[in-house]
Design a binder for these strands. Sequence first.
DNA 1: GTGAAAGCGCTAACAA
DNA 2: TTGTTAGCGCTTTCAC
Lengths: 359, 359
Amino acid sequence: MKRTAPKTQSITVSDVARVANVSKATAARVLGGYGVVSDTIRANVMAAAKALDYRPNELARSMTTGRSGIIGVVVGDIENPFFSLAVRGISDAARAAGFNVILANSGERIEAERAAVRLLIGKRVDGLIVTPSESRDISHLRDIHRSGRPLALLDRALPDLDVDTVTVDDRDIAMRATRILVDAGHSKIAYVTAVDAEGNEYRDLGQIYTSSVRERIDGFLKVCRDAGIDRPERHICLGATSPDETRKLADKLLSGPDRPTAILASDSLIALEIFKVMRQRGLRIPQDISLITFHDADWTSVTTPPITVVDQPVYALGKSVAELLIRRLKGEARPTERLILPTTIIERGSVGPPAAYKL
Amino acid sequence: MKRTAPKTQSITVSDVARVANVSKATAARVLGGYGVVSDTIRANVMAAAKALDYRPNELARSMTTGRSGIIGVVVGDIENPFFSLAVRGISDAARAAGFNVILANSGERIEAERAAVRLLIGKRVDGLIVTPSESRDISHLRDIHRSGRPLALLDRALPDLDVDTVTVDDRDIAMRATRILVDAGHSKIAYVTAVDAEGNEYRDLGQIYTSSVRERIDGFLKVCRDAGIDRPERHICLGATSPDETRKLADKLLSGPDRPTAILASDSLIALEIFKVMRQRGLRIPQDISLITFHDADWTSVTTPPITVVDQPVYALGKSVAELLIRRLKGEARPTERLILPTTIIERGSVGPPAAYKL
DNA sequence: GTGAAAGCGCTAACAA
DNA sequence: TTGTTAGCGCTTTCAC
């Protein structure tokens, strides 16, 4: 005797086949859109499917085909407009190619990233796009590769991992941004970034495990040193990992006697908090202090004054990395590609000569 | 003869069982964490699994159990900070309960919403959270219900659909916002919103198919009429569906001789574009024109002047709806709940008396 | 406590 | 062109 099924009984290929008076295989062929079926039978089956309100079970389908039509995406923080824009680029490219996207957030925590990757592999996504939160422990990324699924990296390169990668030239762009500040006469320039390090004290590059961050710091220091600035690393602030932390950090940074005359912020979320603290402390931009930030976020153009920004091609970054991945998914075998997209600086009104000069 | 597998052969329960010298069923029991197994055997199986680097196939697991541990979420626009914050609320609640989240974007297009729902049902998610883009055609939402999976609605209620819903009181909050403007002396108040209607001409409420939008317009009109404002519906602008469209709309709105003296924007993306256009046209806030917007977006507090906003409990909205859904997923049978979360208005500096008063 | 066997809904050989 | 038959990797009776 058949017990009542605990979960809702759904209509299967067999049900449709029975009603249409054909074999399961034939019904499956028209329902699945493969193989060849005569027009009459096709019509019958379609009618039966419609009558029964048949819905394919994608799970079963993926299980037998080994394909899911899904691209897994793991980003650092979906609330960061940088990532949501990149994700739109990815989604648009995916949709255009008939793929769907599953999104997972790592919150920039490596364990969450590992878990997300594990989940997505478990769900048998066809390929993954990851923004690796650090370069120290990338075993889970190697695992992807080993599982036979293509992986592509977004925004952050991993020298040790030979996979398709799309980034910008972070070192170069940091140099250009810093140079703007140096050229304006600044010599006390702070660089504020989100890396979490013990005590938030910067010691050396080897301590930074996120490639983009490391490259930017490298570029920043290079320009400072070339300009004869003494020990510029003193003004590197790590630990701006949340609005709260950033505010604390900014408050400390802007209160000391050794206050910087210019700040370079590594993303728009950080810059926003810094901007707020500056305001709150009555610091005028750019008369009292200058500010440049990475990412041309919405708000940067509506403040008074508007903020000078590093404009990364975020949407294109996402679109390109998805296209690269999709080409591999479609079977294209080619050497690994590492795309570096061009970046510009939008000069607005937040940079001026250091306060001292005007006295 | 066995052909080479086309796709990477993964380690299965059978493989582990063979190595551990137990039956498939026993291996499955320890690997799946169910049933009873002796400690010795458990240890053996675990060792074998580790040695072989076994990874469970979630697909197969979901197929037999009928559960996936996944909550499907369909939102209007993930780039809208309103939604990304709500999604974080959902994700946090989901994670806390051991669920994962798959995110799909509808772009506020009903066909995309249908497709997303179909995909998620096909993937056999355990339940869905949807921000319905309109109330006219909700057959796909009824389908969810019919498929036996729980559905919960976020931010937009559907009177005809008896499912758990979490919203704010849009009518009330629109009334309060409008009243602030009226009390400041305004009588030419524009309401700008994103609904797409033919010719972007507002005729009557019946034309608006998004519940939140309808309620807000209703509240707006009510307060205007109570204040004796003549035909306030003249100043309702529909069609602010993208930054570009919004800019055009705002440009037209602010150029005519009948220019409003105050604007109420239905979301922060719209308000931002309006703000930019105001700036560009040299309109001073609040001397020349007043502005209030829904959603306490980041940028609204850093402009000069900062913007008065309707502060919805966005994170809580997401968290609550997820919790409601999860309780159902865990088998709780109870009558449908319709939560309405309280909302406040943060008065900042963007509202003043109408320009005419000061002349 | 453990094993054998059936089956989830689908696709993919192969035969007819 | 259509049908038969095996699986995919897992869980789940039901015996032992």
